[in-house]
Design a protein around this nucleic acid. Structure first.
Length: 420
RNA sequence: GUGGGCGUAGCUCAACGGCAGAGCACCUGACUGUGGCUCAGGUGGCUGUGGGUUCGAUUCCCAUCGCCCACCCCA
């Protein structure tokens, strides 16, 4: 085997591509209904964009980015995340215009690159369908974003999604959680896992995320962000709950949801599905009220989400949502004998030009082989052309399901094949 | 990045120091212009790659690449 695809990537072949198309088309349709417009940003950006927005200390930036230097000596990075490029374009292209409070709603379907170790449901190039709603501080918009995701999951047949929500506060109140958390855990740090002992200093909030039993017991007694929210953040969280409930959306409050990107404020949420293994998150997102400003723009709030196409496909597979059986379609031209080859070849192209899906056997094999092939490949009919047909100016059209066949004049054949 | 498991025909898998096999799929024929069912025959492999041990390696050892599973983290 001479060349192989890069580790953690995949070739999406014609037999599975329809699943991708179905999921992508459904996402587009749901976005259309929610009035989000599509945006396509470059597949790479200045490295700084990700470093400054996602956060230099995050795992994504500190160890997972595909970064390279271009010939001009600029540091560039393959899209590591969907929100930062969208916000960059929002500012660069002045999508808000003169109305500083206008809500701009964008969606994208794009590959994301992260150099971590591949695992079930985790790839170095994966694909996210995501949305960003930039310009409104209203919790009703947070709920709309969540509602869109659930509508999407439902539309592709995924049941049993769990929604977890939390608030991570804002610059006014979040720092106090770090202090309180440190104080609360200080005496027990020694009993926690090695990772947590490190996190205690470097990334204190992540202590809440640890799955280790001992660590959980320690942090169970720790103060929760939700108890320390400032008035504004608390009101926002209440507003989110109010709007979710108005939509009849079930959710769990999980104070341990701490998303791995530094720009989140207030709302953080995640969708999980039990059909998956360890990587059970099929989507996540939250509010990023400081991000636009961090990216050099005015202070404009935003909220968004990303959902992983591969994970969604894995869930569909686990739930037994097989592909729709592909109906038979198209015509297979069967050339009988050498004298029929050129007329058949011409007929093939006439049919295609007229809008009929058609194929022929370039190996010029026996009629039997051609018929077998036409059957195995799932064509709806075989169009037989031999000496008899040519003499009469007709073709014999055989229905491959019923076995019935009839002679059809060549000049009306395309219409016949399309019209039935 | 760390740990464990696995790489044999297009696919699913045997063989576990001694000539590399089966089922399915594919091709040809029985059937001279008619697919599916049946039967007969056939193609197909540097056993992931590179070293080592051995008279002999798919098998044992080392390395490497990839996949799978978990950790970390995330979609």
């Amino acid at each position: 085997m001479r060349y192989q695809r890069p580790k953690g990537t995949q070739d999406i072949l014609p037999d599975v591509a329809p699943r991708w198309r179905m999921v992508e088309n459904t996402f587009r349709e749901v976005c259309r209904r929610f009035d989000f417009g599509e945006i396509r940003t470059p597949i790479f950006e200045d490295t700084d964009l990700f470093v400054r927005s996602v956060g230099a200390e995050t795992d994504i930036v500190s160890k997972e980015m595909y970064t390279f230097e271009d010939k001009g000596g600029r540091s560039q990075t393959l899209r590591a995340e969907g929100t930062a490029p969208t916000v960059r374009a929002f500012l660069e292209e002045n999508l808000q215009g003169q109305d500083r409070e206008r809500l701009v709603k964008l969606y994208y379907i794009a590959p994301i690159f992260r150099q971590d170790k591949p695992q079930a449901g985790r790839y170095r190039q994966h694909h996210q369908a995501g949305i960003e709603a930039i310009g409104s501080p209203e919790p009703a918009v947070d709920a709309e974003v969540i509602s869109l995701a659930l509508t999407f999951f439902e539309a592709i047949g995924i049941k049993g999604t769990r929604l977890l929500v939390n608030s991570v506060g804002c610059p006014a109140c979040a720092p106090s959680l770090v202090d309180e958390l440190k104080a609360s855990v200080a005496d027990s740090v020694g009993s926690m896992c090695r990772d947590c002992q490190r996190r205690y200093e470097t990334n204190t909030l992540r202590l809440l995320d640890c799955k280790n039993e001992v660590c959980r017991q320690v942090t169970d007694g720790a103060p929760k962000m939700l108890d320390l929210l400032c008035g504004e953040c608390e009101a926002h969280f209440d507003g989110l709950r109010e709007h979710l409930e108005a939509l009849g959306i079930a959710y769990e409050i999980d104070p341990r949801i701490v998303r791995g990107l530094d720009y989140y404020t207030k709302t953080a949420f995640e969708f999980r599905h039990d059909a998956l293994g360890a990587q059970d998150s099929i989507g996540g997102g939250g509010r990023y009220d400081g991000l636009v400003e961090q990216c050099g723009g005015p202070s404009i709030p935003g909220v968004g989400l990303g959902t992983g196409i591969e994970r969604v496909l894995l869930v569909r597979e686990a739930l037994g949502l097989a592909d729709e059986e592909q109906p038979r379609e198209g015509s297979f031209i069967v050339a009988i004998g050498d004298e029929a080859w050129l007329p058949a070849y011409r007929l093939l192209h006439d049919l295609r030009r007229a809008g009929v899906k058609a194929e022929i056997d370039y190996r010029r094999r026996s009629m039997r082989a051609q018929m077998r092939y036409a059957d195995a490949q799932g064509y709806l009919n075989a169009v037989l052309l031999g000496g008899d047909e040519i003499a009469k100016g007709v073709a014999t059209v055989r229905d491959m399901l019923s076995g019935e066949q009839e002679e059809v004049a060549l000049d009306g054949l395309a219409a016949h094949l399309k019209g039935e």
